[in-house]
Nucleic acid binder design. Sequence first.
DNA 1: GACGGGGTGGGCACAATGACCGCTCCCGCA
DNA 2: TGCGGGAGCGGTCATTGTGCCCACCCCGTC
Lengths: 155, 155
Amino acid sequence: MRRLDTIDARILLALDEDPRATVLGLSRLLGLARGTVQAHLERLESDGVLHRFSRRLAPAALGFSVSAFVMVEIHQGQQEDTLRALRETPEVLEVHGITGDGDLMCRVVARDADDLYRVGQDVLSIPGVVRTRTSLAMRELVPYRIDPLLSELAD
Amino acid sequence: MRRLDTIDARILLALDEDPRATVLGLSRLLGLARGTVQAHLERLESDGVLHRFSRRLAPAALGFSVSAFVMVEIHQGQQEDTLRALRETPEVLEVHGITGDGDLMCRVVARDADDLYRVGQDVLSIPGVVRTRTSLAMRELVPYRIDPLLSELAD
DNA sequence: GACGGGGTGGGCACAATGACCGCTCCCGCA
DNA sequence: TGCGGGAGCGGTCATTGTGCCCACCCCGTC
């Protein structure tokens, strides 16, 4: 994966401030030539450095205001089937293979506490799933952010 | 938080396909009037339904190719101080207050395995932190996605 | 039965885009 | 030592998109 430089970082931080900023606007703001900003933006999009747009969408806007982490212990043998089923469960937003006592760490969302129970059951009923341990995310104490790391790169 | 409608969902899915699509382009693609798309896009940005732009950035592009989940057990009394320190640690990307055996669930990144050890020590040395349990995210089995939920809304 | 929100379609002046050009500077390499 | 090549810059061009109007219409609500 390509490594970002100072200019990329400054552009991204500026886009955080104003996500709909134009290329020309950014070039003026950052004191760069328009072509420079344009080239960097194109590379950012084409190099796979940026995730899909919908990553910016808050699940709550879809009515999924409850989120939880589900540790899933699986039967290693049929991991493929298990993963396929997890992928087909829309409420499962992401799955990581982790070290430690669980095998899979899933982030799930639900409409409310009751709905979360249903999602939990859905996961539990997936073939290959041995045991689950659900932790309800009660408060988002530090909302996802990456700008501190970006800022370090920007100067 | 405002609830999205079908048009919002279709716009967002189209932006997933082409994040740099113009308003005019979207209106043609979706068979909607330009003003309609423009109004929805403005509302999406202004209603706080969209997270900051940098949420789209892959940490690996910054050189942080290792990520991990750190369960942090804290001294409830000084939670404020602990949180402040976590917030000041750039490698800590997000923190959730959760139910269950840990108190805090942190997602952290690091440059490599060695660097992760350092980050782990940093967290452990924060006042109020009693115990930590780190799970290295070895593989992203289902990368974050929300489009299945969006698609349900789109039709 | 009037109102208002949210969609449509059109039109306008202006701004931004994409795609060029040649120029310079700097770094790596033969 | 000198020769690429990459990356910024600054400029131009025709084309496209934007922001902001307008009037209209449908539909559910009070």
